[in-house]
Write a protein that binds this DNA or RNA. Structure first.
Lengths: 205, 205, 205, 205
DNA sequence: TATGAATGAGTGTTCATTCAT
DNA sequence: AATGAATGAACACTCATTCAT
């Protein structure tokens, strides 16, 4: 039974985006031709242009598709958990788990996301901000209940968390032989939560 | 008085690399033509090829040039300091300070470094590893003297530190209006050293 | 009440041709897509191909349609008039009047007719020749009754007349602000009939 | 002996323009690829772009090149002649002679000049106006000395002359078998000067 | 009969690289 | 050593045409 037209169009777009993610992650946005994406999607070159404005639109749409998918899954998974620390644990574990489950997607996100092109950066700013807000909401909640330290700006902590997770994924992609990704969640969280120093009086700056 | 030939050649290469860094940081590696780099360096297109193999060699050489310069300055500045925690503080402050002092260089490093091209990644792996080793050396030293916690793998902690610093610089580049970079060193280090949680018994996972 | 099939088909073709004339006149044959013609005609792209072989056939058919319509109307209007000079006056006035009445059509004829493509030229040669024959018939008739000078080849005179009218229409299309087209018929005819020189002995060549 | 750089550049541009005129005249602007023009000029595709902005600039530049060349030669030839009628004769004869001498150039002018594209039309308007001004100057001069009739607007007469010459050239290009072009100047001028009617009282409209 | 999604050949243009001067 | 004119391979994108529905 064939789907109704709008569903068919959405399905087609999804097929193309998934092909684009695979192609871009393997060869990079600039190292990849539109023809290769089309071939990966099993279509003719021209067909892509029925669904996307051009190559750049393909990249931007792929980012939004991926990021929004991640956010949605994170939200669904963390909404049950009330405790901020537990939510943070969940978020990091899920993030690492999803990256490990789809290596193409992870590679796409880690290595294609930092495009120097202003237009691209602007277009993906919103979903990225969405991710940052999730972390900050957890931290603020933790401050409210007293489990997150109040003396540090939420934004600074968010950057540490985001940067640490990001770097962990990148390192795993570059050296996959060094082990699984999801098992790194534990130690990573331990450092994020308690710092690198042995408990005791902090040395003065 | 003209310099001796080898010095003259090195000087010329340096001029070209600095031009390349400016050009790449502004327009991105792929958004930039060799002709633009040549113009920025005040030479003819063909001249670049007397000093570098091609565009890619230019990028790789620029990375090495920048990274080795950074490492050298970090080494010179931290060699005096014996205490691991103090050295870590110094390293982070210096890193942020150098990025703030040369925005083109910072932009170049943050946004051009993650190239999906395998050849490029391979070529810059060595100096990047050098940076990682500096951090790990400090951490190991700290473990030895007992100020760094021994229960977490050095590599995991290094990734957290590197990722956090990296993300902090990126955020500053994307939102320069939000303040100076070097003043962020204090809170950032505080989080890295002590974690995001309020001191007390850690909640069980 | 629906028409009989052949009439319906002819009606449909006419709709398409009129749409093509509008579209081609506005954007030019090469600046216009088949999709635009279809949209102008209120049909799907593919439908055009049920009535015409392709884009070129559309152009050629449009030319024949327009030229044959013009000829028919000219014939109907001039058949009553017996005097050659009067018929020539009528023909020029009608031509200008028809162009003025349908600017799209005029634009189409003036700017699309001279196609460098050999196949197109060949295909529209016949109706164009028909127009030339009308003028020549009038001139020959004038020669017969003695009002047109016999010392000049009919073909040369026909070219002067055709060229002058053609240029007048073109100039009006390019500079519509300079006035109405039909009022130019009088002076134009005066020049064609009596020349640009003040009456008197012609200067020797 | 090699020429100095500016001469070399101008020479190169000229080579390209002459190749473009040949290619466009044979296949039409739209039926011709940039690669074909390059091949005709004996260069690589990319070389054209060192001298012209693109295909459209090539067309516009070719028009200006041709028209300015024609005007210059017309001016040089007619400047000696003082009598307006004689100058008009000269102008028409020269025009036909130049067209006959270079069939590619004639074909290019007659069939490519009427481009529906607004930008192209605008760009070639100026040299075309120059040609019109030459004719009008002669006519006004004739009115002043009394050999051109004063009762008809100069502009109307100019259009008749221009249109008649234009149509004569076009007809010769389309039917080259019907004879030489320059011998048509005499009868053509006779009609333009004295009209198509046998001398005598003009029939009332 | 009518549709419009899909096709894929075709083209203007860019740009890294070379090499004669 | 330095130049910069010349090259030509490569690529994003268009659009006339087809055909399954």
């Amino acid at each position: 039974m064939s789907r109704s037209p709008p569903q068919r169009k959405a399905q087609r777009q999804r097929t193309i985006l998934e092909a684009a993610i695979r192609a871009f992650s393997r060869q990079g946005y600039h190292g990849c031709t539109v023809a290769q994406v089309a071939r990966e999607a099993g279509m003719a070159d021209g067909t892509l242009y029925l669904y996307f404005q051009g190559k750049e639109d393909l990249l931007i749409s792929a980012f939004r598709f991926v990021l929004e998918g991640l956010l949605e899954r994170l939200d669904r998974a963390t909404e049950q958990e009330a405790d901020p620390i537990a939510r943070l644990r969940l978020l990091v574990k899920l993030h690492l788990g999803m990256m490990e489950a789809d290596r193409d997607l992870a590679s796409f996100l880690q290595f294609q996301l930092r495009q120097p092109d202003e237009a691209i950066r602007h277009a993906i700013a919103e979903p990225l901000t969405g991710y940052a807000r999730r972390i900050e909401a957890i931290l603020d909640q933790g401050k409210a209940v007293g489990t997150i330290r109040p003396d540090i700006s939420t934004r600074v902590m968010r950057r540490v968390i985001f940067g640490a997770v990001d770097e962990t994924v990148s390192a795993w992609l570059l050296h996959p032989e060094s082990g699984t990704l999801s098992t790194r969640a534990g130690p990573l969280l331990e450092v994020l939560l308690r710092g690198v120093t042995r408990p005791g009086p902090v040395p003065a700056p």
